[in-house]
């Protein structure tokens, strides 16, 4: 019995050590591990200029507009706290729609706007049939 208890204590100590070490590593990693900046982050902490970064949020309703050159598009990314205007030229993912999530890769401009070279669609954890989605289903997306 005694030996078993000794082993149990050793295992628990090892567990605590591992968890403690990873907890420390995690808190160090916290800020770097974010996949994208939200508009609110940038409004609060300042523009990460000169770096190739990601901007994520919702595509503001009514904001998608084709530009005069016929290829580029402009839209606004919002997180409910702040907004960032974005310009993009390239192929757009199927799920890129207004009132839907987006992650844009590119660079911030000094005027606070964002020029994207790649777009990813981000969807939330809600799944439902079209009938249930109702009005949500009818949001404007880019014409094919």
């Amino acid at each position: 019995m005694k030996a078993k208890h000794q082993r149990l204590v050793l295992v628990l100590l090892a567990l605590v050590a591992v968890l403690g070490a990873s907890g420390l590593a995690l808190s160090a990693l916290k800020d770097q591990a974010a996949f994208f900046y939200a508009p609110g982050d940038v409004a609060r902490d300042g523009l990460p200029l000169g770096k190739h970064v990601r901007l994520g949020g919702m595509v503001e309703k009514g904001s998608i507009a084709r530009q005069a050159d016929g290829v580029s598009i402009a839209f606004v990314v919002t997180d409910g706290v702040a907004k960032v205007p974005v310009r993009f030229r390239g192929v757009v993912p199927d799920l890129f729609k207004e009132d839907s999530g987006v992650v844009a890769e590119g660079q911030f401009q000094s005027d606070g706007s964002f020029v994207a070279d790649n777009l990813l669609a981000k969807h939330d954890e809600k799944y439902m049939p079209p009938q249930v989605a109702g009005a949500m289903h009818e949001t404007k997306s880019l014409e094919p």
Partner: peptide, 19 residues
């Protein structure tokens, strides 16, 4: 914890966000 591309939890002990 982090901003991720992958969406959040859709199934938990209290319910699900899946229809």
């Amino acid at each position: 914890w982090w901003n991720t591309l992958h969406q959040g939890q859709s199934i938990g002990l209290t319910g699900s966000t899946i229809d």
